[in-house]
Structures are given as C-alpha cells and as structure tokens.
Amino acid sequence: MTNEVMRIFSISIFIFILSLSGVQLYGQSDTLVFNSGNRIVGEIKKMEKGILEIDAAYGDENFKVKWLQIDYIHTTSKFLINIKNQIYEGQIATESDKTIRVFQADSTYIICALEDIVYLKQYKDGFSNRFSAAVEVGFNLTKAQDVRQFSFRSSVGYKTSKSTFSASYNILRASQSNTETVKRTDGLLNYSRILIKDWYGVASIYTLSNTEQKIDLRANSQLGIGNYLYATNRAYWGIVTGVNNNLERFTNSQSNRNTWEVFYGTELNLYDVEDFNLAFVFVGYSGLTEKGRFRADTTIDAKYDLPWNLFIRIGFSLNYDNQPAINASQTDYILRTGIGWEW
C-alpha cells in the first residue's frame, strides 16, 4: 500500500512539474530568428533605440540584439508599437522579406517595413508599464583653489497611445576660493499629443535661474506645434514652433520683464551606434513685444549605456541673450559629466 501511494505521489509531482513547464513555455512564446539562422524563443520586453530585449529561459539576463538583425519575428504578447509616431496596441509578425504585420485578433492595423518600427514595449495595464525615470549625479574636486562642483539631473516620463508627459529638474553648484558660488537650476514640464500623421501639439513650462546672467527666475510658457521630419529605430529628427510668454526676474534689478516671443526649435537624436546615444536640442526665441531681442538655448548630450540600467553622460548647455540684464553676461554655458540610472 505504501509503495502504491508513493508511486501515485511521484506521478503527481511529475505531472505538476510538466504543467509548470507548460505555463512557462506558454508565457515565453515570442519567437525571433536572426539573419545568421539562430533562433530565440522567449518573452520580448521592449525595443528602443534599435536594440531589442528578450527574456529567455536559458539566460540569467535579458538578451539584447540589434533590431535590424532580425529576419523573422512572431509575438503572442501585446505591445505598444510606435511606427513613425503613430501608436498601435497589438501583436506583430513577419509577413515576407522583413515586412511586418501589426494586428490584434483578426484585425490588421498596418503592414510596414521592419525599420519603420521606432519603438516597441510590452503592453500591460497599469501605471508602471508606461512610466520611465532617470537620475544622474556628478562631483568634481580639485585641490588647486579648492574647486568643487556638484551636479544633479533627473527626469520622469509617462506615455500613453496618444500623449506623452515628461518632467525634468537639474541643479549645478560650483564653488572656488575667493570667488562667488556659481548656481544654476532649471526645470521643465512638457506635454505633447499626436494630432495627425507626423504632427503633434505641445505645451510646456520651462524655468531657469543662474548667477552668470543675473537671472533670479525665468519662466517660459509655450504652446506650439511640431512635426517629425524623420523617425526610425536608428534616429529621429523633429522641428517645433509656437508662441512663448517670457516672465523674468533679475537679481540686480527691481523691474521685471513680461514679454511675448515666437519660438522655433529642432531636436536630433541618434542611437544606432551600439550603446552610444547622441542628442542635440536647439530652441531660438525672437521678441514680439520686445523688438530686436533674440535668445537661444542649446543642449548637446552624449550618453553611453552600461549594464544594470546604468549610464555615463557628458552634457553641454549654452544660453544666449543679446539683451541680458544690466552688467550680466550675454552667455552662460556649462559642461558636466555624471553617472546615472534609468528605469
């Protein structure tokens, strides 16, 4: 009797293990085949900046592969799919010769080339799947003249099928013997929404304070429209224009400025060089109520991705104003380096 019970128990355990394996295989049912003929079956997490991440049972960490090296793909997971800045919710499968079908059940949304897919992320209901964040710190210290510099950069984002919300906050503090402490702080709240095709609307609030230009507070409130001229999984390039209300308060003046401007800008982002990313942003402002005034903000960031979602970044920012505050400089620029983490 005891042997019979043990035999039944062993069979039950065996069936239970098989059922668990079946559940695992069912959950890992996205399939990739590469140009080399190699094949991976697992759970695709995301594809961004030309790199796809897939979780396979035979690896401790997610595999990362180049998107354009994929010869065949078929998913059963549901994704948020960005194709030239149009967002779809569904699955994808290779049709022929790297032609991709985006579908849900029996409905086909679009058929496109593999390289037209800009972004891919596993879709799950809930806040965390659409949320992103990054934080970065940097510190420099030299014995000569007791130079100390501290920088902090942070950003958060939330993305839906049509809208994107982002916010950032950055600090720079630099001190040196026998000189005034350099202070710079800037923040951004930005909301954009896809309108039609490659066009989108944007509303933002940008704040800045710095000691070099005697700016106690500059608050820009912008409303505009933008267009993506080029958007693939290798790079994107967009332009934007609109109106801006510029409210300023200076540390060396009792009077405030409240003016209207037209703004125009461009953003270029390159990310198809292994783990290296390069971003360039330029925004110019021409006075409407204050004729002859011109301002410009320029940012260049070079970022290299490390394991465990870490990264190192070198950034350069330049602010220019041809009509600054009294006894203030026309330009203020900073060069900073730091190490950060993103999620």
Rank of each mutant, 00 (worst) to 15 (best):
107 S>P: 00
75 T>K: 08
86 Q>R: 14
97 D>S: 08
104 Q>M: 03
106 D>F: 14
69 Q>Y: 04
78 K>Y: 05
79 F>T: 00
77 S>R: 13
76 T>R: 15
101 R>A: 12
77 S>M: 01
98 K>F: 04
106 D>L: 11
87 I>F: 04
95 E>M: 06
93 A>V: 03
82 N>Q: 06
103 F>E: 01
73 I>R: 03
90 G>K: 08
90 G>S: 06
101 R>I: 11
95 E>C: 12
81 I>V: 09
106 D>N: 05
82 N>S: 15
99 T>A: 13
105 A>I: 12
87 I>Y: 13
94 T>D: 10
94 T>Y: 11
94 T>S: 11
93 A>D: 11
79 F>S: 00
96 S>L: 13
90 G>M: 07
94 T>I: 05
102 V>G: 00
100 I>K: 15
81 I>Y: 09
100 I>P: 14
99 T>W: 04
82 N>A: 10
72 Y>W: 13
99 T>Q: 04
77 S>F: 00
86 Q>W: 11
102 V>L: 14
104 Q>Y: 10
85 N>K: 02
87 I>N: 14
107 S>H: 15
107 S>I: 12
97 D>W: 15
76 T>S: 04
79 F>W: 12
94 T>H: 06
74 H>I: 02
101 R>T: 07
89 E>L: 09
75 T>V: 12
103 F>K: 12
103 F>P: 03
73 I>T: 14
79 F>C: 01
69 Q>F: 09
95 E>F: 06
103 F>G: 03
81 I>C: 11
94 T>F: 11
78 K>C: 10
100 I>Q: 07
80 L>C: 14
87 I>G: 05
78 K>W: 07
100 I>S: 09
82 N>C: 03
104 Q>W: 02
106 D>Q: 13
88 Y>N: 05
69 Q>G: 07
89 E>T: 10
88 Y>L: 04
100 I>G: 03
83 I>S: 14
